[in-house]
């Protein structure tokens, strides 16, 4: 026994050696760049000459000068991007959740070919986001798009609809594409949770003649709730940083610009490293806050006090 505990101690020492290479890489690729971004957000650095800049405090975030407010917190474009991001995140995640549960319940039925169905569900997820964005951009094309042609054929619309062209419809379209791409993923998570549920409960409910809808809300939903909560958190954090779908489908158009698109535009297109870093730091702060709340409330490693 003492030999084992001595080995445990030796192993604890070598544990650090084993984690070290990974930690060094993460420090280089995450911690250091993040620290630099936060530092740059307090400067007026530009991309033209990133080595010469002045420290300007919090001026990129909020500053008052000669009767006017400056900084991202008063920048209508940034606030607009914040609003867009929140709308996108809430709308897409709630739709994905509801549809994901419905699709999981449908696919959970014991019919032949369930394996094929599950495979079909992985297809939208496997298609690269840029490719999905391009395919949908083509399908939603106002003149030659198949969506308009089908809707017109069914008599649902009179003339071509400009899905992606500068109106609030653009955001609707983006949400729709994200829902198409990500709902199957949510559905697969729900499906995995559904398949761990004990069959006896459902037998009992059936024998007692309880209506299936009631069974769903009273039995199924409470049992799969933990899985749903995790899915929602991950999807929300993912949606808050949305970049590629929006960037490819509508570029930097104001109606759909998200915080990530705004930050990259300031950084790369406007070459304003200071301001762009401030915008990225703002987004990081929001996501970090959400992550801390998630870890504090749900404790994904469990509550045991072990090291």
């Amino acid at each position: 026994m003492s030999k084992i505990s001595a080995i445990e101690k030796a192993r604890a020492r070598s544990a650090w050696l084993f984690v070290l290479p990974m930690l060094v890489v993460l420090a280089l690729v995450a911690a250091w760049p993040l620290a630099r971004t936060i530092w740059f957000s307090l400067t007026n650095a530009t991309l033209v000459d990133p080595t010469t800049y002045d420290f300007i405090g919090f001026d990129n975030f909020l500053a008052y000068d000669e009767g006017r407010w400056y900084g991202i917190l008063t920048d209508p474009q940034w606030l607009n991007a914040l609003g867009n991001t929140l709308i996108f995140a809430v709308a897409s995640v709630s739709l994905e959740l509801v549809l994901g549960v419905i699709i999981a319940l449908i696919v959970n039925a014991a019919l032949p070919g369930r394996g094929l169905m599950r495979a079909a569900m992985l297809v939208p997820w496997a298609i690269p986001t840029v490719v999905s964005a391009k395919i949908w951009q083509w399908m939603l094309n106002d003149q030659f798009g198949v969506v308009n042609a089908m809707l017109e054929g069914a008599g649902l619309i009179d003339g071509p609809v400009a899905w992606l062209g500068g109106s609030s419809l653009a955001m609707v379209s983006i949400v729709m594409v994200d829902v198409w791409k990500t709902t199957p993923f949510v559905a697969l998570l729900v499906l995995a949770a559904l398949q761990t549920l004990p069959k006896e409960i459902y037998e009992a409910a059936r024998v007692d003649g309880i209506h299936p809808v009631k069974v769903f809300f009273r039995v199924t939903l409470p049992l799969i709730k933990p899985a749903l909560v995790v899915a929602v958190i991950f999807r929300l954090l993912d949606a808050m940083r949305m970049f590629d779908l929006v960037y490819v489908m509508t570029g930097s158009s104001e109606e759909t610009m998200t915080l990530s698109v705004f930050a990259r535009q300031a950084l790369v297109s406007f070459q304003d490293v200071g301001y762009g870093s401030a915008a990225s730091t703002g987004l990081f702060a929001i996501i970090a806050l959400l992550t801390v709340i998630y870890i504090m409330t749900l404790r994904p490693l469990g509550r045991d006090s072990g090291a």
Binding site: P33, T37, F243, V273, G276, S280, F284
Partner: peptide
């Protein structure tokens, strides 16, 4: 968010 480490 990937964009948060972009400048660094």
């Amino acid at each position: 968010p990937q964009v948060a480490v972009l400048s660094g």
